[in-house]
Each structure stands twice: as C-alpha cells, then as structure tokens.
Simulated scan of single mutants.
Amino acid sequence: MKYKILVTGAAGFIGSHLVEELVKQGNYVRALVRYNSRNEWGWLQTLPCLTDIEIHTGDIRDYDSVRNAVRDVEVVFHLAALIGIPYSYISPLAYIKTNIEGTYNILQAAREEGVRRVVHTSTSEVYGTARYVPINEEHPLQAQSPYAATKIAADQLALSFHRSFGLQVVVVRPFNTFGPRQSARAVIPTIITQVLAGARVIRLGNLNPTRDFNYVRDTVSGMITVGLSDRTLGQVVNVGSGREVSIGELVRHIENVVGRDIFVEQEEDRVRPVDSEVERLLCDNRRAYELSGWAPRYTLEEGLSETVDWLRENLYLYKPELYNV
C-alpha cells in the first residue's frame, strides 16, 4: 500500500535514507526541513529522487509550521531531534524544546489534522547501561544524559497520545545506526575519516563500552516495516542488529576493511562523565520479527565496507582534525 507521508528530520543522516527508500517504494513523500534563508536542504540535495520529494520548510519547535506540514498526509515519520550527547551537557534546554516540545507539536498537529499514524523515533540511549542483555523493550529506562532524558519524555508523550486520544502511534527504537552521510559526531565516521585523512594515530574516547551497530539500510527497512505494520500500534519496538561490539573491537574491524593498522590515543575531552557513560548496549530484536517480520540483512563488515567507500569519496565534507560534539 502506498501512502502520503511526512518525514521530519528529513535532511539528516537517517532521515535522508528513509526519504530515499520511501520514494523508491512508490510513496508520496513530503520532507520537513528546518527553515533557512539559503534554501539548503541538507543531504536531500544529493538524492537522485530530489525532484520526487515535496520540500516543506519550517521548524519542529513552531506549532504553526508543524501543523501546516502535517496537513493532508496519512503517516508521519518523526525523526527531527537534537541527538548529540556531549552538546546536551552544554545546552539541555535546547534538547527540551526540540525533542519534547517538538514531539508534542507533531502529536497535537497529527491529532488535529486527522493523520492516520505517527511513527515516532526513539533511541537505545533511553535504556542506559544494560542491566541485562540482550535488551528487550521491557528493560528499565535510565536517563544517563540530558539527551536520553528528553527522548524518554518524548517517547512517553507519544504513547500517552495513543492511550489518551486514540492517535495511532508506533515507537521505533533504533540502536546505534551507522553508514553513509553520518556526521563525525558518531564514532564510526570519526574513526574512518581520521584514518582516510592519513592520521598515524587517531583520537578517541573510552574504548571499553559496547554498542549494537546497525547499518542504516537495515535501520530504515526496520522503521518502515515496523512502523507501518498493523500489529505494532501502541508498541515500542527495538530495531538493532543483535551484535555486541566494543569500541576497541570496532577499531580492529575497521582496520580489516581499510587494510592498515590503526593506533589509538585516548583524548580526555572525548570521554563522557563516568556516571553518564552507557557501558553496554545489545539489542533484543525478536519483537520486531514477531510482529512485522523484520530482521537485519547486513553484516557489520558489509556495512563498514560501504561506509568506507562512501567516506573515501566524500572526505572533503569532513574535518577529521576536529572533535565534533
């Protein structure tokens, strides 16, 4: 079935891949892009399907522009958010306004405009350090950063609109997504761009935490499959690979893909506060499969290979010598 869909956060990393796949599947896609006087549309400008997308400029924090954006659509995929954890230490209020108030604007506008379904994007950061693994959807929520706190609030707000007002809501909870177009705020492009720029020693933070890295094409297929399933309404559903890799082990995987030794120097500025560091994440993705039939297809090595190839061609867009927060 084809839908008229609004994607918020469409100009970003995951959002642009989601837009691309939704268009490929034959849906009509409206992309909400943050207003700017230069008419810059982020990664959407690089897509071959750009002419098949309706660009709508506005601001997720402004209810009027959000309501205009959701008008006449059937489904909203809500991805717009501030996501950098280190910057949430600096400006927590910005995260409250964007992640919580922005989500309210989407939910209320969808309710007022008769939108059929809102697919809300969560994050595995809401779980904090795993109390048990693999982490299923019943795992306790633990906010170890202001970012995680605002995402917990946004998730619960979305679920409350389902329970209180009958708005059809699905909460999709991706684990650590990586792939082409990701900013150097994330660890995988941080490692790869430093290596491709010729650094003999790369700078990282803590090498011990483990993560569940999911290639962006798998994350997007999971968001669509889970988000549009009739069996997931009112549910929180994890989307992850089911593989656990430490940051130190990740460096060795990237060594194999790029074909050179990588030496690491720990930089104190890149280390999160002790009580804020999420030490372990590993996804239990069984609910996604049981309710929608979704399962990841890419191995870590396949995803890293495609990511390295893309970053090699687009290295000029990055500043490997700088620490991105």
Rank of each mutant, 00 (worst) to 15 (best):
300 L>Y: 02
300 L>W: 03
9 G>P: 10
115 V>G: 04
181 R>Q: 01
239 V>W: 09
90 I>W: 02
215 Y>K: 06
134 P>N: 07
33 V>E: 07
205 G>N: 02
43 W>I: 10
226 V>S: 03
169 V>P: 09
193 T>M: 02
186 A>Q: 10
233 L>P: 05
272 R>I: 10
210 T>R: 12
61 R>G: 01
304 L>V: 03
287 R>D: 10
152 I>S: 03
13 F>Q: 08
184 A>K: 13
158 A>Q: 00
42 G>R: 09
152 I>K: 00
138 E>Y: 05
12 G>R: 06
77 F>Y: 12
300 L>A: 02
136 N>W: 12
11 A>F: 06
243 R>T: 12
12 G>S: 02
211 R>N: 05
258 V>F: 00
275 D>I: 04
142 Q>K: 12
163 R>N: 15
172 V>S: 07
62 D>A: 02
279 E>Y: 02
272 R>C: 01
317 L>W: 11
263 F>T: 14
57 T>N: 10
192 I>E: 00
203 R>G: 13
320 P>K: 13
31 A>M: 06
37 S>T: 13
121 T>Y: 00
255 E>A: 10
52 D>I: 00
86 P>V: 00
76 V>Y: 05
116 R>Q: 10
37 S>K: 14
169 V>A: 09
49 C>L: 07
277 E>D: 04
149 A>Y: 05
52 D>Q: 14
156 Q>M: 13
10 A>S: 13
39 N>S: 15
147 Y>K: 04
88 S>W: 07
87 Y>H: 11
183 S>R: 09
243 R>H: 14
21 E>F: 03
125 E>V: 14
306 E>D: 11
76 V>E: 01
114 G>I: 08
191 I>A: 06
292 S>D: 03
263 F>L: 08
